[in-house]
Design a binder for these strands. Structure first.
Length: 342
DNA sequence: AAGTTCCCCAACCGCATAGTT
DNA sequence: TAACTATGCGGTTGGGGAACT
């Protein structure tokens, strides 16, 4: 036999709390402690249900609640923790003293989420956006370019098409650079997302062939240290003890305070995230690219790209190859884009 | 000045899980 | 073990103020 059913709560008050109600709740808890939320409203003289009282206390009346806007440090910590834990607001809140899960959730949905979207980062995956909507600008430009071939006689179709083609190329370049930029930025500020795959842009060869040759390594399998293309050697966060995190700003007041069990939990979360990242990486380049026609112009450009790649040894050779592809060999690439567009 | 839209955030709702009888 | 409650969590809503037209 279970407990007796709870009292009829159909006529309890809902909506915003009045100062009088706040006073009653605070007064009762300060004298008697929390006790059980179910019986608290009756004893405190409140026509509310226990759930509402608990929420009011936890999110607003609790004396240790920190007021005011979240700091940049707190914001960065939220982003980092969210990349590991996902929408586990209560877990995230435990790393931000004085902040409630509700506050963090609201701040994420109203501020951080928008910021990330604006930066071209998917707030769910913390990876560059590859959704169709975000790439719509490009497809629209390509569409406009196609329209150029059937433009009315009162315009200069050749000139317009050239302009639009140039614009489309610039858009591609901009998108690529933004994706590369953002991934590098994320990687540098979040050790949990470091791996070769996101620090290196997709090679032009990959892009042109449409075959994904990205080497995605499981961070759980790599050694204690691995080179960072940017130049620094970054310690593998997974080989560190929790106290090692105190040497870094990231997770300063967060994961480092967790015990080993939580540390393993974060590892577990991260492994799942990396698995999904790997799945994503396998679909990083849209099939649109894979169907590029292999023409004489294509072969010429590929030769140029191979030459460019041979002549550069720096970590940024891929970028330089892209630059050569999109800017220097304008005649060839222009023809190639025209072929694609047509 | 009035109406409309946008945005923030407190509070609610439904669900999952742990605990109690 | 079943039935039920208490609690906590994450998603969602809607009131109200700010910004815009």
């Amino acid at each position: 036999m279970g407990r007796s059913p709870s009292s009829n709560e159909s006529n309890v008050k809902k909506g915003p709390w009045t100062p009088e109600e706040d006073g009653k709740l605070m007064d009762y808890i300060s004298k008697h402690g929390r006790g059980t939320w179910r019986t608290l409203p009756k004893h405190a003289g409140l026509n509310r249900n226990g759930k509402s009282c608990r929420l009011r206390w936890e999110n607003y009346l609790r004396p240790d609640i920190k007021r005011g806007k979240l700091t940049e440090e707190e914001e960065q910590l939220i982003i980092n923790l969210h990349s590991v834990l996902g929408n586990k607001w209560s877990k995230i809140a435990t790393s931000l003293p004085g902040r409630t899960d509700n506050e963090i959730k609201n701040y994420w949905n109203t501020t951080i989420r928008k910021k990330l979207l604006h930066m071209g980062i998917d707030p769910e995956t913390h990876r560059p956006r590859t959704d169709l909507n975000y790439l719509m600008n490009l497809s629209q430009l390509l569409g406009m370019s196609n329209l150029g071939t059937s433009m009315s006689p009162w315009t200069n179709p050749t000139s317009l098409q050239t302009d639009v083609t140039q614009l489309a190329k610039l858009q591609v370049l901009q998108n690529m650079l933004q994706l590369m930029n953002n991934t590098s930025l994320i990687s540098m500020t979040n050790p949990y997302l470091l791996d070769n795959q996101i620090l290196n842009p997709p090679s032009l060869d990959t892009f042109l062939h449409g075959t994904n040759t990205l080497q995605v390594r499981d961070p759980m399998l790599r050694g204690p240290e691995y080179p960072n293309p940017i130049g620094n050697n970054i310690s593998d966060p997974f080989s560190q003890t929790p106290s090692d995190y105190s040497q870094q700003n990231i997770f300063k007041s967060g994961i480092e305070k967790e015990n080993e069990t939580s540390h393993q939990e974060v590892r577990s979360y991260t492994k799942n995230i990396n698995t999904s990242q790997q799945n994503q990486a396998e679909n990083l380049l849209p099939p649109l690219v894979a169907s590029c026609p292999r023409t004489t112009t294509f072969n010429k450009m590929q030769r140029n790209y191979n030459e460019a790649q041979k002549s550069t040894e720096s970590p940024f050779s891929t970028f330089e190859a892209w630059e050569k592809f999109l800017i220097e060999d304008d005649e060839a690439s222009g023809s190639y884009w025209k072929e694609i567009l047509e």
